[in-house]
Amino acid sequence: MKIVNITKLALLAIASLMLMPAQADYPEKPIGVMVAYGPGGATDFQARIATLASGKADLIGQPIYILNKPGAGGRTGWNWFASEASQDGYMLGAYNVPHFIAQSIVFDTKYNIDNLEPIGNWGADPAVLIVGKDSPFNTVGELLAHAEANPGAVTISGAGKFVGHHIAFLQFAKASGANLTYIPASGGVDALRMVKAGETVAGFNNLSDSARSAADLKILAVADLTRHDYLPDVPTLMESGVDVDDSSVNFRGLMVPSGTPQDVVDYLASKVPAMFNEKKTQGKMKSTNSPSRVMSRDEVIAMWNERQAYLTELLAGLK
């Protein structure tokens, strides 16, 4: 296995040397974006919207197509991306933080923040704490009081283990000291169904999806540092007295595998934020209720490193 990897690296090094002179022309053909989730999901359709404008001459200058590689909660796609994707800038990947970082800490994956290079961030979807519309609880305080009186009886659903919702739950349970039960559903939609149906007492779910379903839900708090534009009346968890920061916010953006030539990375890093900020793209993000947050490569590097350090500590006991 090791030897194969070294040979691979050597071959790639030679290949990239051979490619050097041609790089002046990058990009000269359409560029792919690998999405580690199936078509129709939030990451998939946001990736399609965010890269809509790539063909414009003053932006990337080539159209972008989406390649879905779903499986094992995103691991299949990211493993492929880190180990097999071409490193010539013609295959980008969509990342979901904190998902892929948490997975690389807990599981034996082929990817981690050291063999991936971020390019730019297009969106940030915070987790929100929700209860059904007929729930007796109207504030975080009431929910926690109930949890204190009935240890373990408060069930909180989320979209599986080691995703943003689970991180939010872990932080929430740790900060409040309450004895809560996490219910890992098979996806965000199913987790939302559990709360709407009253199957679980509460749930952590995406702000975008919850805001859309406001008629069936009560949104108690946002797991972010500030209140969100979509829900100006909903307090943050900190305002509600539980010390939870923005570590569970689901950041989405583009990356390339390490080994991609530096000038390609620089080229993409200089164009991608402008592509995300393009007027029509932003309009479409807004009309589809997809929370946008454009960040440059340097900002994403800092965010990745911060998450890596924090999540290593938070998940230490859960391996």
Partner: peptide, 27 residues
């Protein structure tokens, strides 16, 4: 009406609705 798909295909259709800014719900 509930944004909950009744089949795998309906789940993909949900993405198709959202992409057009049509948000499923009682209203």
């Amino acid at each position: 009406t509930l944004s909950i798909p009744g089949s795998p295909t309906a789940a993909v259709l949900l993405g198709g609705l959202l992409i057009h800014g049509i948000f499923p719900g009682h209203d």
